[in-house]
Every structure is written in structure tokens, then in C-alpha cells.
Design a protein around this nucleic acid. Structure first.
Length: 414
RNA sequence: GGCGGCAUAGCCAAGUGGUAAGGCAACGGUUUGCAAAACCGUCAUCCCCGGUUCAAAUCCGGGUGCCGCCUCCA
């Protein structure tokens, strides 16, 4: 495997090499289960799934951790975002996150996203988060102000490296923003918020309250991946502040790089417009499934351009993806029919695969090795099927085997 | 303002130094009782200007346009 990946940290393509030979360990930013997840989020989960499938295709062992955020966070008005969402539905915060977590798993299975190794829930890891904060405190990286605990960003000189922005730039941009009383520096990170007014709070050495925005992923990757791993993924919107803050905290803890490679999915538009609440064009996977679109078609549409590029999603994207999926399904059906019943004697002996299979395999692997180019890999298979004359198929069992092997990465059949 | 991405026909799009895939649409034709379908055919000096090279959509520099991010999102 000669895989090359574009690393957001540095912005270049780099040859991939895992920390432990033959094993790849990854952390994926997962859903906040307060509402149905939009397709941009699913795009990043599909990137995680694609990585996993590619590594397994290459024979590597894979460990995947995807967090489930089910702890209330505060918005700029000091309101708990989970509680706000819950209040609109008449459910309690806990009932809401349990329901939405079930929906998340159902939807991701519909898109043929395989089960990660671990789906840690933030709510069940508050003790680990408190341990992280205590550790940071012991190392002199925190301070207290008005009862809250903050991470002191000035002791992290590399802050801003992932986003490619010097810390001074970030500061300047935030200059106008309202700050909680006592917070020393604009970029300082919330670690523990003392608060008993909201539905969810826990006891801690700093009083009852709840953990800050970014400490959750730090604690969970530390627990399941021992603080240093191969690949961290998310959407482009996670780069700053979330991933930047994760790096600062984790590296303050271990002195080692948190992840060697950072991969992010590009922005999603809907019919040419940014998918935002203001544009009223947010599309969720649930909506699409309810509207009768097949999961495999939604999957193909979300993977129809390279993961770093802008994706223009919408009906047109679905219309383009549908015939591609159908081509794969129809060819698969055709091969299954050709291989059922008594094996024909002339096919019993396995020779070397038909030339088209080897050619396609080569193009398929080259595409994936080149920064996980799923569209090109799919095109290699579709192009081969399209040009194939019946007499060139060769042993249909070998063709079936090849198609199902490619689909272990493509995920259209399963 | 800072940082990043993209630019190939009416639309979608392949292309990773060697005379520009494919699909949709359109147009012409064959077939057809009409229509549809099917089949055949037609349809691009690759955003602009410079540079490197025997050779550039492809590499380099500059420009233009569009898009994204910059504390609701984890």
C-alpha cells in the first residue's frame, strides 16, 4: 500500500505511515445528538468509513473511535444547546439524546457506514474529563476565574498551526466578542464551567458544573487511543476552534503530537448555496431517507467528489448518483444469476482473472492510494463495466468476487 | 482583513507533460401507422496574460471570477 494523504496540518500530501505497523488507530469527531444530523456531518462520517474500508482492504487492523456528544454545551447566550433542542420537542435532555443517538445509528447503517470500534458517550466520561483538567492544572496550564477553570493558551506557542493562522490573527478576529468575566485571554479554553442552573451537572474538585467544549474529545481519545494516534478526522468547520483546542490540551498533557494526520471534509452546498440555517436549506440524512432516497444513493452522492472539495449537494447530485449505484447493482445481479445453479464444467477450473479485472484493480488501487480518491475509484469500476462485452467477462465467479471485493471499499452493495 | 479551495462545451464531468473520456441536453439521420424507445452521426483552440519545455488543460509566476473557514455546529 502506497497511500498518500493530504494532511490539513501542513496542507500537503504526505505518504501515510502508521505508528504501529499493520494497525491504524483513528479518532473521528462524531455527532452531537440533539437533532437529526445534516448531510455535511454524514460526509465526514463517510470519510471515516472510507478510511477504515481502505485500510481493511489493504489488510490492516483498524481501531476507530467516534465520540457521541450528549452533554449540554452553552451557546453565546449561556443557554444549554441540548436543553433548547429538548424544550422544542417536549422531551427531557436525556430522552432527546437517547432518541437522537438511536436515529444516528440507524441512519449511518442505512448509508452503509460500518460500526466503529468504540462510540464513547461524553456523558459517561465526565470522570475522565475531570482527570484531564486536574492533570492540566497540576502542570500549571490552567487558571480559575469567577469559579470557572480555563486553559491558558499563551503557554501553547503552536496554537493556530492546524488552521494555518497565527494566534495573533485569531485574537484580532475575536477582539469584538463578549468574554466571560475574569477570562484572561480571548483564546483561552473553557475547561470546567461551574453551573447548577442547567439540567445536567456533575460534582468536581471545582464545584458542581460541566466540562468545557473541547475537553471531551481530549479525554476520550486519551482513554481509547492513549493520547497519540494515526488519524483524526472531522468536517472543515471543526478545524478551528475545536481541533486546535484539542491539540493544545492534549499536547500540554503528553508533550507528543495528538495525531499524525488530520483529515477534513470540504464544505457542503445545497444547489449552489451554503447549507446553513439562515439559508433554510439544511438537509438531514433522515429527511432524505424519509423522502424515499436509498441510503446507497445518498452515500454515493456524498462521496461523488473528493472529500476535500466543495460538494454541491441536492436533487441534482442525487440524480447523478442514482444511475451509478444502479449500474453496480444491476451488474451484481447479473453476475449472481450467472453463477447460480450447477457450475458449468468449462468454468470449474480457475484460470487467471480476465484482463479487465486486473486492469480495473490497478486503477482502483491507484485512485484510492492517491489521497483516497473515491470518485476516481468508482469511475474505474463503472468505466470497466460500461465497456465490457459479454464475452470479455470471463469466469463470472471471478467477476463476482472482484466486484464484491471492490465494494468492500465502495460500500454500495453493503 | 487573514487563510484556504476551485475554474474543461448549454449542464454534470474525466483528465496528474505527448495531438480533449463519458453522461445529460440540443441538432441531423435510420427505424416506426403516430409517438416513444433504440441505433448512427454532429457539437471544446480546457477563465485571462506571461514563463519553462521539442511538446502544457496538466508545471511555474501574475491577474480575474466564484466558493469556503475565521467561537451556535465537536
Amino acid at each position: 500500500m502506497a497511500l498518500v494523504l493530504t494532511n490539513t496540518l501542513g496542507g500537503r500530501k504526505e505518504p501515510f505511515e502508521s505508528l504501529v505497523p499493520g494497525e491504524v488507530r483513528m479518532y473521528h469527531c462524531g455527532p452531537t445528538v440533539k437533532e437529526h444530523l445534516n448531510v455535511a456531518k454524514f460526509r465526514s462520517y463517510l470519510l471515516a468509513d472510507l478510511l477504515r474500508r481502505c485500510f481493511e482492504y489493504a489488510g490492516c487492523r483498524v481501531v476507530q473511535v467516534m465520540n457521541i456528544t450528549d452533554v449540554g454545551q452553552l451557546n453565546e447566550f449561556e443557554e444549554d444547546i441540548v436543553e433548547i433542542a429538548a424544550s422544542r420537542t417536549g422531551l427531557s435532555a436525556v430522552e432527546l439524546v437517547e432518541k437522537e443517538e438511536r436515529i444516528f445509528h440507524a441512519d449511518r447503517r442505512a448509508l452503509h457506514i460500518r460500526d466503529a470500534t468504540h462510540y464513547p458517550r461524553a456523558r459517561e466520561h465526565v470522570a475522565e474529563m475531570i482527570a484531564v483538567i486536574a492533570d492540566l492544572e497540576k502542570r500549571g496550564r490552567t487558571y480559575e476565574a469567577a469559579g470557572n477553570i480555563y486553559f491558558d493558551i499563551r503557554k501553547s506557542p503552536r496554537f493556530g498551526e492546524l488552521a494555518g493562522k497565527p494566534a495573533e490573527d485569531l485574537e484580532r478576529l475575536l477582539a469584538g466578542k463578549k468574554q466571560p468575566p475574569g477570562k484572561r485571554h480571548l483564546l483561552d479554553i473553557d475547561l470546567w464551567r461551574r453551573d447548577v442552573l442547567h439540567q445536567t451537572h456533575w460534582p468536581s474538585p471545582w464545584g458542581r458544573g460541566f466540562p468545557g467544549w473541547h475537553v471531551e474529545c481530549v479525554a476520550m481519545s486519551r482513554k481509547y487511543l492513549e493520547g497519540s494516534f494515526d488519524i483524526h478526522t472531522g468536517t472543515c468547520e471543526n478545524v478551528f476552534p475545536h481541533h486546535e483546542c484539542e491539540i493544545a490540551q492534549s499536547e500540554a498533557l503528553t508533550g507528543k503530537p495528538l495525531a499524525r494526520y488530520w483529515l477534513h471534509t470540504g464544505p457542503v452546498l445545497v444547489d449552489g448555496l451554503p447549507m446553513t440555517r439562515d439559508n433554510r436549506n439544511v438537509m438531514t440524512a433522515r429527511q432524505m431517507l424519509d423522502a424515499g432516497f436509498r441510503g446507497s444513493v445518498i452515500r454515493a452522492a456524498l462521496l461523488s467528489v473528493h472529500h476535500r472539495e466543495v460538494l454541491d449537494f441536492g436533487e441534482a447530485a442525487m440524480d447523478r448518483a442514482r444511475p451509478r449505484v444502479n449500474t453496480i447493482l444491476a451488474f451484481h445481479e447479473h453476475l449472481k444469476e450467472a453463477t447460480t445453479g450447477a457450475p458449468r464444467p468449462e468454468l470449474r477450473r480457475k484460470g487467471s482473472p480476465a484482463p479487465w479485472i486486473e486492469e480495473t484493480e490497478t486503477r482502483f488501487r491507484a485512485a484510492l492510494d492517491d489521497d483516497l480518491d473515491y470518485p476516481r475509484a468508482l469511475e474505474a469500476v463503472l468505466g470497466a463495466i460500461g465497456k465490457l462485452e459479454p464475452e470479455d467477462i470471463g469466469d463470472p465467479r471471478q467477476a463476482l468476487e472482484a466486484l464484491e471485493r471492490w465494494d468492500r471499499v465502495l460500500g454500495i452493495l453493503a
